[in-house]
């Protein structure tokens, strides 16, 4: 086709507009499903770390900000209060992530009122299958975090085993857990709801 400046501009413009419209349509169909799935996965993970909790309540924004300021390189997406069926707070559910080998390893971690880790589960990660993913496929790795004493420190976390061949991935999980130790000590310890 003979090209003039006008039809060069027009053709790119038309293609872009059509593509944008197509994507907007796809997005409007899939976005609610994706959000619902993310939420369901997060809820299931929270239930997994606190089987006794009846409900989870997001903390107030001011408290979340305080927590995030303490976390350093670890990102804290959300902090929940775990509430039991009697309405009393039994602990904290944290959605945290630290860099592993392939981007962020997102965890859901439960802390009881004394600051003891109840359980750590992996929400999402992009680690190398067969290597980095062993942090999930070898349950002993995640289970050892529940053996940390109440009021554990970064030093306690460093004493735990890593998976050889998956050093960066193991460290990603450890960094998140260490960060929660500091967060608990400085903020969450005194922020629990009393009844």
């Amino acid at each position: 086709m003979k090209s003039s400046p006008l039809n060069l501009i027009l053709s790119v413009l038309i293609v872009c507009v059509v593509a944008a419209a197509g994507l907007a349509a796809t997005y409007s169909i899939t976005a609610p499903i994706i959000t619902a799935q993310d939420k369901a996965a997060e809820e299931a993970a929270l239930k997994g770390v606190f089987p006794d909790a009846a409900s989870f309540k997001s903390v107030e924004p001011a408290l979340l900000e305080k927590v995030q300021a303490l976390a350093g390189d670890t990102k804290v997406d959300a902090v929940y209060r775990a509430i039991d069926s009697a309405g009393a707070q039994i602990g904290w559910g944290l959605k945290v992530g630290s860099r592993g080998y392939g981007g962020y390893i997102n965890l859901v971690l439960g802390l009881d009122r004394d600051g003891k880790v109840t359980r750590v589960t992996i929400l999402s990660m992009n680690e190398t299958p067969g290597l980095g993913t062993r942090i999930k496929t070898e349950p002993a790795f995640l289970e050892q975090f529940a053996t940390l004493p109440a009021g554990f420190t970064e030093k306690d976390v460093k004493g735990l085993d890593m998976i050889s061949g998956a050093t960066k991935s193991s460290r990603g999980v450890r960094n998140s857990v260490s960060a929660t130790a500091i967060i608990f000590e400085k903020v969450l310890k005194d922020a629990g709801e009393v009844r």
């Binding site: 060069l8 790119v12 293609v15 872009c16 593509a19 197509g22 994507l23």
Partner: peptide, 20 residues
């Protein structure tokens, strides 16, 4: 599709389908 801008147009089309 004009010759001069075919690559950008290809990329937009491809990126569109990939995003879908």
């Amino acid at each position: 599709i004009p010759d001069e801008v075919r690559i950008p147009i290809f990329i937009v089309i491809i990126a569109g389908f990939v995003t879908i």
